[in-house]
């Protein structure tokens, strides 16, 4: 189980690295899709079918929207990038070194906390349900839902779902507002 997941994760890491270094925006998006759909297979292996369904829908919708955003602009951007690299090479390099340095410092910062957290977690596969044991025991009787995840989302933690719906509504209003108003010239 752990081996299968590790192979899938290495595949996803390769897709992510290619997505960040691709010269073409369209191929970068498609390789970002590798990460998303690899995540779907990981969810299926981890016994989370609801998450897999939601993730596959969300990933498809996101991919379509992103392709629609970049479709008529890809080639133009590529040409500009090549011109820029030829013109001011050492100027870009100084900024690039600074950026990589920032990444290394932040990575060390995160590594410190990751190290602390990983010491307190149980090893993979030996999780003990503490809070959810009440949900697992009584959910079918209390909520009448055979799916425990649905029971948690819509009954035990319904206010959380209400907040999620509020965020979705706010996002829709925000997108409409941003796309409607004409910008100042």
């Amino acid at each position: 189980m752990e081996l299968t997941l590790s192979i899938l994760l290495v595949f996803m890491i390769i897709g992510a690295v290619y997505a960040l270094f691709a010269r073409d925006l369209l191929s970068a998006l498609i390789s970002c899709g590798i990460v998303g759909y690899g995540l779907v297979i990981c969810f299926l292996l981890l016994k989370a079918p609801d998450l897999a369904i939601v993730q596959i829908v969300v990933e498809t919708v996101t991919l379509i929207i992103m392709v629609a955003v970049i479709l008529d602009s890809t080639r133009q951007d590529l040409r500009e990038k090549i011109v820029h690299n030829e013109r001011g090479t050492h100027f870009i390099n100084a900024k690039y070194v600074f950026n990589v340095l920032t990444v290394v410092i932040l990575a060390l910062f995160f590594l410190f906390f990751f190290n602390q957290a990983i010491g307190r977690l149980e090893p993979f596969g030996t999780h003990v349900t503490r809070m959810a044991s009440a949900y697992v025991g009584d959910a079918a009787i209390k909520t009448g839902s055979a799916n425990l995840v649905t029971g948690v989302l819509f009954d035990f933690r319904a206010y959380d779902t209400l907040g999620e719906a509020t965020i979705l509504f706010t996002a829709v209003v925000g997108v409409l507002t941003i796309l409607r108003i004409k910008g100042r010239k």
């Binding site: 981890l46 425990l148 029971g151 948690v152 989302l153 779902t161």
Partner: peptide
């Protein structure tokens, strides 16, 4: 499998 992290990740 623990349903609580799955519900949170769904959100």
């Amino acid at each position: 499998v623990d349903p609580l992290p799955q519900a949170m990740v769904l959100t």
